[in-house]
Computed example of a mutant assay.
Amino acid sequence: MSVLKKYKKTMITLLALFFLIGCKESEPLPGKPWRVSVVMPSFYPIKITQAYGVNEEQDWTMPLHGLAQSMSTSKLEYVRTVFPDYDGFGFPISPLTALGGRQLGSSNKHLPDSIYIYWTSLINMRFFVTKYDLSPKLKELMAAELSYTRRDGTIDASCYRTEFFFGMLPNGKAKVWLWGCGKFIYLAELDPVREKDRDQNGTTADEYRQGPTPTPQRVRQRGIDAGVSTVPIPWEKVGKVYSKNTVELLSEQ
């Protein structure tokens, strides 16, 4: 076979594979619709003002709701009902301690290409935008059917990993996991794509600081009540992961 024919054959094969992968990515998830959940350290709660997924090829934007009650969900006494040894500085990653974001309206099983979260770090009044891009490998993982044995011994013969967990830190960094089938897969650590001078509702830091009980003061009070120092931020303590489930790496999949 000539070099030219070999080249043509290779190109045809690559194009065919590219076409098949592209078709597979555009198919809807066979399991539950994708979701986004958010966790944060109890001593460094955040406020989410906007979150959505974007699919460029299909030209849609899907808003997410249910991510507003960060102050109550992140309370130290509440998190300790799930993780009794929780120190208040780490990430308590569990469906029980997370803000659960759901799609607005009908549930779209087509995956987004990117997820955007606009949020405020309430300890230091900084405004961040986090963006996470879904890779082809990740989309394949989310579409793969698995089975696993629950803690009570029952077997789930058909499960999918379709929920993202974002963990937010007061310097704007975020960690991302994929949840499903009884385990977490650690995906990435992200820098903010943007830092703003106000939140998506137009509220500035000065406005957060106003009122009889300013937000930063209420947040700092959590540490005072617990008898620990939270300012300056002890970075050696912040970001430790608390989980009752297995946590694996994306490279291990």
Rank of each mutant, 00 (worst) to 15 (best):
S26K: 09
S72Y: 05
K75L: 14
V54R: 15
S37R: 06
W34F: 08
K24R: 10
L67R: 04
Y44H: 06
C23Y: 11
H65D: 13
V54D: 02
S72P: 00
F91T: 00
G22T: 12
E77W: 09
K47Y: 08
W34I: 06
P84R: 10
Q50V: 05
Q103G: 07
V36A: 12
K24A: 15
F83Y: 11
T61F: 04
C23S: 12
R80F: 06
V38T: 07
A51D: 01
G88Q: 09
E77P: 00
L64Q: 08
W60L: 07
E57Y: 10
P45Q: 09
R80K: 15
M62P: 07
E57H: 05
V36C: 06
N55K: 09
V39A: 02
D87T: 01
E77I: 05
G66K: 01
P95I: 11
V39Q: 03
Q58H: 08
Q69C: 01
G88A: 06
Y78G: 02
T81E: 15
L29I: 05
P45N: 11
S74I: 04
E77G: 01
D59H: 07
Y86M: 02
L104F: 02
N55M: 04
I48P: 07
Y78M: 13
T49R: 08
I46T: 05
G101C: 09
E77V: 00
Y86I: 04
G66M: 01
L76F: 02
A98D: 07
K47M: 11
Q50E: 15
Y52N: 01
D85A: 01
A98S: 15
V79Y: 05
R35T: 13
P92R: 12
V82F: 02
Q58K: 15
G31H: 10
E77N: 12
F89Y: 15
A68R: 13
Y78K: 14
P33L: 04
E25R: 05
R80P: 13
G53A: 10
M71Y: 14
M71E: 14
M71A: 12
V54S: 03
S37F: 07
S72H: 03
G100M: 11
L29A: 14
C23M: 11
L99D: 06
Q58R: 14
D59L: 08
A51C: 05
S26V: 04
G22H: 11
S70K: 08
G66P: 14
V79Q: 01
R80D: 06
T61R: 15
S42Q: 01
S70D: 02
L99M: 09
P84W: 04
G90M: 12
P30Q: 10
T97Y: 00
A51I: 05
Q50Y: 06
L99C: 03
N55A: 10
V79M: 03
I46V: 15
H65P: 00
M71W: 11
V79L: 03
V38K: 10
E57S: 10
D85N: 05
G90A: 09
G22S: 15
K47H: 13
A68C: 01
C23I: 08
S42C: 07
M62W: 06
S26Y: 04
S94G: 10
M62A: 14
S26G: 10
P45Y: 03
T81L: 15
T61D: 02
L99W: 12
K75V: 02
E25Q: 14
K24F: 15
Q58G: 08
K75C: 02
Y52H: 11
G53P: 09
T81R: 15
N55Q: 12
V38R: 07
L76T: 01
P45G: 07
P63Q: 00
G101I: 04
G53M: 07
P92I: 11
K75A: 13
T61M: 13
